[in-house]
Design a binder for these strands. Structure first.
Length: 715
DNA sequence: AGCACGCCGACT
DNA sequence: GTCGGCGTGCTC
């Protein structure tokens, strides 16, 4: 008798079952769970003496379930994630298999029907059928039905749909399959010398990890595509990860054209059914190229060769809910668990963590230094906002007029949506705050609403102070909506398009706006940082950052790095082809190192300066961080409850600062205390261990503890 | 997800 | 006393 640790659907922990049969990790079975049938995945085998509860309670596994098994490397990856990110397995599984794991009721019905059928058809008939399928490479369903009968064919199809799909094709599909077998687009774009060298360095290299540091417009995408194509020719699969899938329509079009039916697009808008179909197509090897956001890193690609992270510095690669994993770490871990998988990170402005690893030799650094099509570097200009009345400097207004006259296009970036970020009463000083969060409400003019960016609370705006009844209110904290209004008043004939996450909820909306601007239906594109990334608008010759300080003043040790990245990415939108581009940065802090180094295009210099500071302060990559938030709807006693947890995890050998009120003390009706742990790489593992066991033992009513390992967002 | 268990107030 | 409300914890 063998013992197995299983994950049973819809449970929060593991269960042990036994069986005479041999099971491998990732295989499915049906078990009796508190009196009803459930599907379960085998996680690992276990020994009798390791079981620390009444062994007599252990039930036997009912039967094997013929669902496509989960690859063993993904099981191992999930084990690692739960431990590294201090997460429960339930949430890990939910993240890796969103909706795939659960057998819904209709599927269960199919399964039990299968059991019935299995009795109806004796094993010899099924064996004949299987032999026939193996022998024939391509069969139409009509032939099969003629030979074996309709019932058996549909039974076989339902039972082992994917395995059979390979052989069983209808006439139309047969034609389609021949057409799309392999790569549809055989015409390769000519690569320049640098690109060719990069492709070769990766293909022939002995390293597992590569960083392509390529300036904007140097053609990183062409390098990725060539790698994926070449891998595909020898049957190798790839995972291509992008920060936000809906925001890169032109990239999607491009890849769809290149790889046609070989490509699976995984994104959050897929229904459970679609997701399952894609998953099965990938798992069975019908689709070898997967494109998607973070969670696509878990795709069960057959014969995986490459995991590519485009724009690797993007913070959306970090999941901000449990398990709080970073896609880059997971990709590297996954490559570790498999043979011959290479991870390729690409960015014009790599995160300093990644660049540090490249400098240390963990990741091989490859550089693309030339702009594709010989486009020129943009010219920078800096304006000190201290000498400016309002949001627009003379320099900016002059440049906008100039470009409008020349019929060229302009991009203006302000990293703040809404009209104003708070409204203050001039008489009593009251600022209207969110009833659920300790944060001011943002004003949206078009909708005449006040909204909270943290909990989603909203209400209609009344131009009267809630405290003293005064009508003397002032809007503070300028957002894109206000800029749009002011700009419209100054440039009455200019056609202005505003894009932010508030007015582009769907991909269709976004694509329409994108195309409209590209086709010059608008002169000025105004928006938050979502418009700073990866677009190609040939007619744009001026990009301006209206206020570079918004990110810079964030209480985050990476604020400078993020500012450098945003400014550089935004600059890349200016002067993409023959025309020379200009970039104008407005700031209250013109002497800031991040801004100065952006202007002199000195990534290396800024990196070196930042590293000195981080080394002294023991911030990543020199130290490691864990952020713990202890929250409750009840404020009374929360400080003590936070300290109780603190006392459980602290230890005399390592210094952990006491819990403190979080910078945003209340979010979504929950009061929050924070424990911020900064530690060296070795003792961090001991601390993690103590956090893990403390989480199990800590019992306080109404208190939630969330642990963020390697946080990206420190608030 | 279900279901038992048990702690409280309302009710014959 | 006991009926039932639902919060909590358990299911191998």
């Amino acid at each position: 008798m063998k013992y197995y640790v299983l994950y049973v659907e819809n449970t929060k922990s593991f269960f042990t079952y036994k069986s005479e049969e041999e099971y491998k990790p990732g295989e499915w079975c049906i078990v009796d769970f508190s009196g009803r049938k459930r599907s379960a995945v085998i996680l690992r085998e276990t020994e009798e003496d390791k079981i620390d509860f009444d062994i007599k309670k252990i039930k036997e596994i009912d039967s094997r379930a013929d669902i496509l098994s989960i690859p063993e490397d993904i099981i191992k990856l999930m084990d690692w994630m739960a431990v590294y990110y201090i997460s429960d397995y339930y949430n890990v599984i939910k993240t890796v298999f969103p909706g795939i794991l659960k057998l819904n009721y209709s599927q269960k019905a199919v399964f039990y029907k299968e059991l019935e059928n299995a009795e109806k058809y004796n094993s010899e008939t099924i064996k004949d059928f299987n032999d026939y399928m193996k022998k024939k490479k391509v069969v139409t369903s009509a032939t099969l039905i003629k030979k074996f009968g309709k019932d058996l064919v549909s039974y076989a199809q339902s039972k082992d749909a994917v395995k059979i799909e390979k052989h069983l094709v209808t006439k139309e599909n047969k034609i389609k399959e021949i057409e799309t077998d392999g790569i549809i687009n055989e015409t390769d774009i000519e690569l320049n010398e640098e690109q060719k060298n990069t492709v070769e360095a990766i293909e022939n290299g002995n390293n597992d990890y590569y960083l392509i540091k390529g300036i904007t417009g140097s053609g990183k995408t062409e390098v990725y595509i060539r790698l994926i194509k070449n891998a595909l020719k020898s049957g190798g699969g790839s995972i291509f990860l992008v920060p936000e899938i809906s925001l890169t329509p032109q990239m999607m079009d491009r890849l769809k054209r290149e790889f046609s039916n070989n490509v699976a697009l995984l994104h959050s808008r897929l229904t459970t059914k679609e997701r399952k179909e894609e998953w099965n197509a990938i798992k069975s090897g019908n689709k070898k190229v997967v494109i998607g956001a973070r969670s696509a890193v878990f795709a069960p690609v057959q014969n995986l060769k490459y995991i590519i992270l485009d724009e690797e510095h993007e913070t959306t690669y970090k999941q901000e809910s449990n398990p709080r994993y970073h896609t880059k770490n997971v990709a590297i871990k996954r490559a570790n668990l498999l043979e011959n998988v290479k991870v390729i990170l690409g960015s014009a402005t790599p995160s300093f963590d990644t660049y540090y690893q490249a400098k240390e030799g963990v990741i091989e650094l490859l550089e693309l230094k030339n702009r594709y099509n010989d486009a020129k570097k943009p010219v920078y200009d800096l304006v000190n906002l201290q000498n400016v009345n309002g949001n627009f400097s003379h320099e900016l207004l002059e440049k906008i007029s100039e470009k409008l006259l020349k019929n060229e296009q302009i991009i203006l970036i302000l990293n703040r949506k809404a009209f104003s970020t708070f409204i203050k009463c001039r008489d009593c000083g009251t600022v209207e705050t969110c009833p659920n969060c300790s944060i001011s409400l943002n004003y949206y003019r078009k909708e005449n609403k006040l909204k909270c960016h943290y909990c989603g609370y909203e209400k209609y705006f009344k131009p009267v102070c809630g405290n003293c009844g005064s009508k003397n209110l002032i809007h503070l904290g300028t957002g894109t909506e206000k800029i749009e209004l002011e700009l419209g008043e100054i440039f009455k004939d200019a056609r202005i398009l505003r894009i932010d996450s508030e007015n582009t909820k769907t991909q269709e909306q976004f694509e329409k706006m994108y195309n409209d601007f590209k086709n010059h239906k608008y002169d000025i594109l105004l928006g938050t940082q979502i418009i700073a990334k990866g677009f190609h608008f040939p007619n744009v010759t001026l990009v301006s950052i209206i206020n570079a300080d918004i990110i810079l003043n964030f209480p985050d040790f990476r604020a400078g790095e993020k500012t450098y990245q945003l400014l550089t990415q935004a600059s890349g939108r200016s002067g993409r082809e023959k025309k020379e581009g200009e970039v104008l940065i407005q700031t209250y802090d013109p002497d800031n190192d991040a801004i100065k180094k952006t202007i002199s295009d000195n990534y290396e210099g800024y990196y070196e300066n930042e590293m000195e500071i981080r080394k002294i302060l023991k911030y990543p990559p020199y130290g490691r961080i864990i952020n713990i938030v202890i929250s409750s709807e009840t404020e009374t006693g929360l400080k003590e409850k936070a300290e109780k947890f603190y006392n459980m995890i602290k230890e005399k050998n390592s210094f952990i600062p006491k819990p403190f009120k979080a910078p945003i003390y209340r979010i979504n009706n929950r009061y929050r205390y924070q424990i911020f742990i900064k530690s060296d790489r070795i003792s961090i593992n001991n601390i993690k261990h103590r956090i893990r066991s403390s989480l199990v033992n800590y019992r306080e009513k109404d208190v939630r503890i969330s642990v963020d390992v390697d946080p990206v967002n420190l608030l």
